[in-house]
Amino acid sequence: MSTLDSTSSGRTLDGVRGKVIAVAGASGPAGRATVRRLAAGGAIVIAADIDQQRLDAVTAGVRTAVPGAQVTGQVIDLLDPQEVHDWADHLESEHGHVDGLLHLVGGWRGSKTFHETRIDDWDFLHDTVVRTLQHTSLAFQPALLRSEAGRYAIISASAAHKPTAGGAAYAAAKAAGEAWTLAMANSFAKETTAEDGVPTAAAVILVIKALLSPEMRAEKPEAKFTGYTETADLADHLADLWSRPAAELNGQHLWLTAR
């Protein structure tokens, strides 16, 4: 399994300037931070979510925080494959290129013991975590392959590599998402359109233990949150994907927590 340790690199966000980047799951903690960071770096950001009200709040907040931000919102049902395909086609037609899809759709279900695991939890995570990823990756792969700097990224969890008894459904969903993304990475390596044969597109897996949002920090200011990744740091790492060569990133696990 290919892995890379990801540490603060000191790179600027200039790599995203002018890039057309879609963010699925934009209203979640990771999505909000990422949309803001990309907009601050000069990207053309399309924030996607299934809830119009939450989406409006995200885009309005970014426009307030980042004067001149190029951000729009798109209500999308990621469980509808045709709707996602149409969205990908529309973005490429409208902008001439699509340079990224950041899949930040998540969810967690678990139990106290392995025996108490509910198959209903697996069904929920299969749709939320796996099926949405399948739809976005299949829809955006051709456009990302045509881009000069296509990037597809998911957020996985260390639990996928060391499952706990009560986290069987969650760990299995995350592991399935990783396998699917690695298959996409292989497609980028095999189908590169660059004349010199060097890949221009990359599919990447960022691995965390858990996310730490500003709201969580405010609620428990004395807590240590050991091993957690702050949403702002995650957003920085995602923006940094466009400052690194595709060949260096494609098919890699970027660990943002201890293994």
Rank of each mutant, 00 (worst) to 15 (best):
L241Y: 09
P81V: 07
L182K: 13
T164V: 10
R217D: 09
V98K: 04
T193P: 03
H97P: 00
A143S: 15
Q141W: 12
D80S: 07
W122I: 01
A247I: 12
D14Q: 11
G227M: 07
P199Q: 02
V23E: 01
D86Y: 08
A157P: 00
A24T: 09
T200L: 12
A26K: 05
D51W: 02
S243P: 10
G68V: 04
A159D: 03
E248G: 11
W108F: 15
K162N: 11
A149I: 02
A65D: 14
R244H: 11
R36A: 09
V62G: 06
T231G: 02
L211V: 03
D236F: 04
H90P: 00
H85K: 15
G68T: 01
K209M: 05
I46G: 05
S147P: 11
G28A: 06
G15A: 08
G41T: 03
L4H: 05
A210D: 15
V129E: 04
I44V: 15
T132C: 05
A171F: 00
G167K: 03
E195D: 14
A40M: 06
I155D: 01
H135T: 08
V207H: 00
A65T: 02
A60Q: 14
H115D: 14
G110Q: 11
T117G: 14
A175L: 09
D233N: 12
T193W: 12
A203K: 06
S137G: 14
K19W: 07
T59Y: 08
L4D: 03
V130A: 10
L38T: 06
E248A: 13
L102Y: 10
Y152I: 13
R109P: 12
G42S: 01
I21T: 01
L238Y: 08
G15Y: 01
M184P: 03
D236C: 10
F140T: 07
R131M: 11
D14H: 13
S6A: 15
L101W: 09
P163V: 04
G96D: 02
V45D: 08
Q82N: 13
A65F: 06
D56P: 08
T229C: 10
T193H: 13
A48R: 13
K19V: 09
W122Q: 02
N186K: 15
H95P: 01
G68C: 05
G110N: 12
G106C: 05
R151H: 08
D196T: 07
M184L: 15
A185L: 11
H126K: 13
R118V: 01
A149Q: 14
W108V: 15
A258G: 11
V62L: 01
G10E: 06
Y228L: 11
D49V: 00
A172L: 10
E230Y: 13
P67S: 06
T229P: 06
A149T: 02
G96P: 09
I208R: 03
R36Y: 00
D236P: 02
K112Y: 12
P29F: 10
I21P: 11
I46F: 09
G73N: 07
K162R: 15
L4C: 03
K220S: 12
R131F: 10
L133R: 03
D120Y: 00
A22C: 11
V66I: 08
A210C: 07
A246I: 01
D233K: 14
L211H: 05
P29I: 10
T192V: 09
A168Y: 04
V84W: 02
G227K: 05
N250A: 03
A210P: 00
